[in-house]
Amino acid sequence: MSEVEAGNDPVATEVVEQPPSPQPDVPAATGNMIEARGLKKIYRMAKVEVRALDGVDLDVMPNEFLAIMGPSGSGKSTLMNLLGCLDTPTEGTYKLNGTEVSGLDDDELAAVRNREIGFVFQTFNLLARATSLHNVELPLIYSGVGGRNRHQRAMAALEKVGLADRADHRPNELSGGERQRVAVARALVNDPAIVLADEPTGTLDSKTSHEIMQLLVGLHENGQTIILVTHEDDISGYAHRGVKVLDGLIVSDERQTPRFGKD
């Protein structure tokens, strides 16, 4: 794998046309997982117009491990919110796993998030009063999976992250790393098209961060498409492709050799 150098012009957006080299055991997928064209997000305050995102094109192929990087205020959070269907663009189109989502209403977006996106947050965002199992079950509850099936799928997801024995624990009985593993299990439980991890190691020490990233690397090796949002170079180094955002624009988009492999 060779690094592709993006143009130096900060206004130019780089579109990756070729799929990254997929893992050998993953069948080549057809079509893009993400196809975003001219995404803009403009906030109009009293007299000021803030262009949080000013025309972004992005394609992500299945089983890519993509890192979106940029300093705070760069627009990377806005981009993440749009990619995660938490928000709708002011302008532009966004096709996720074959569905155009830019025109959907709140409830339709909720259904898309539930089905297609697995979120991993910086602060875990587990429900404090719920057990690990219950936290992992939540997306299934909202997609109407009931009874034994739900229980089995949630347990399977907990096993994937190695926390089956912590199913009855509440978040305050778990370490930070364990909490984030539960969150990863929750993100995986509905077999999403994309796992969207927003600064997943932001509150973890470096050793635990590495463990969590290893977990994501493992998922990627099993065919999962992962988008990582981070401002830490160390963390973005696990990804196979790096997208830099600055002032609401993608300023570089390059394939990279992951600096950290699977242990």
Partner: peptide, 16 residues
């Protein structure tokens, strides 16, 4: 508020 945000991110509709 945050819990509501998380639930919505995980797919809760308004009615939920």
């Amino acid at each position: 508020t945050r819990e509501i945000g998380v639930r919505k991110a995980l797919g809760a509709r308004r009615s939920d």
